[in-house]
């Protein structure tokens, strides 16, 4: 059994402008390809196109794990699911995540009512409403297994990311053990959760830079505070990786994702707190 870990989208945030880097990067999404079955962690804007560019298809997707329901993590989820259904995937796709995953999945058939009714009529497919299965889990407690099958075991840990329930995931396969931070502020200590993993994929923000842009745009203090308090600066990523003892740290969910902030610049910010291998995510990077 072999596992490929592919970054489909490396951009963080819901701003799709030159300033954010959205021209170059798709929204956050990471694919675990385990013996041909795809497990997606998040499905941000443009990640479906990246999935195809990676040589995969929606029909390959067995499960999606949502870290939280901000649009930069879910924008392409509906499109992915309808295309998986349209491609005739069987059995169903499972969507795992914290609230409101269950209500989100329940509402999905209504969003695509006209298209799916028509497709059922002309191609004898199972009802779309039965195709997507929600696996919502509670947040707030200790880390717990949220998915286990013949290929992967996934544990989730609640992290602190402002108003929406949010989690980090640890994805174990026969040959890989990878932790993805989701979106998290400094109040959550991921080091224990990530201890012994081979790779930590950690979201990152260059807050001083982001703050300058946001203030120039006249953003409210609440929004600026969300960026400061609910995301992680490079030094926190590095320190967490060091304490967890991982060999590789991948910076992803980059804020900003512009070419102006180079890989070298990101690495320099992490270097004082982590001596291991550092990768700066870009779309279609294989980790």
């Amino acid at each position: 059994m072999s596992t490929r870990v592919i970054v489909l989208g490396s951009l963080g945030g819901q701003s799709y402008t030159d300033v954010s880097g959205a021209r170059l990067r798709a929204g956050t999404s990471v694919a675990f390809v385990v013996d041909g079955a795809v497990y997606l962690v998040d499905c941000g804007l443009g990640s479906l196109a990246r999935l195809l560019e990676a040589g995969l298809t929606p029909a390959d997707v067995r499960a999606v794990l949502v870290t939280h329901h901000h649009a930069d993590h879910t924008a392409d989820l509906g499109a992915l699911l309808v295309h998986a259904w349209s491609a005739g995937r069987r059995p169903e796709v499972r969507v795992h995540g914290p609230a409101p995953t269950a209500s989100w999945v329940r509402a999905l058939p209504d969003v695509h009512r006209v298209a799916t009714d028509r497709a059922v009529a002309h191609a004898t497919r199972p009802a779309f409403s039965a195709f997507v299965r929600a696996e919502e889990f509670a947040t707030g407690g200790d880390a717990a297994v949220v998915l286990r099958d013949d290929r992967v075991e996934v544990r989730a840990l609640t992290v602190d990311h402002g108003g929406l329930p949010s989690v980090a995931y640890r994805v174990r396969t026969a040959d890989r053990d990878v932790v993805l931070s989701g979106d998290t502020g400094g109040k959550t200590d991921l080091a224990g959760f990530a201890a012994g993993a081979d790779t930590l994929m950690h979201e990152v923000i260059d807050f001083p830079l982001a703050e300058r842009v946001l203030r120039a745009q006249g953003a409210a203090e609440e929004f600026i505070g969300h960026q400061r308090d609910d995301h992680s600066p490079p030094e926190v990523c590095g320190a967490t990786a060091t304490r967890a003892g991982v060999r590789t740290l991948v910076l992803y969910h980059l804020i900003p994702g512009t070419p102006g902030v180079t890989d070298t610049a990101w690495r320099a910010k992490v270097a004082p707190s982590f001596a291991g291998r550092v990768l700066v995510a870009r779309d279609l990077l294989e980790v």
Binding site: Q14, S15, Y16, T17, L45, L48, A71, A75, D76, G78, A79, V82, H83, S86, V111, H112, V114, A115, R118, L214, Q217, G218, A219, A220, E222, F223
Partner: peptide, 26 residues
């Protein structure tokens, strides 16, 4: 028409275009 090839990104477009505006609360 309301088929996937026309609408897959439509709702996300509405959300994305909305989110691109100022978060100034004004």
């Amino acid at each position: 028409r309301l088929t996937f090839d026309q609408t897959a990104d439509l709702a996300s477009l509405a959300m994305g275009a909305w989110s691109n505006g100022s978060n100034n609360g004004d």
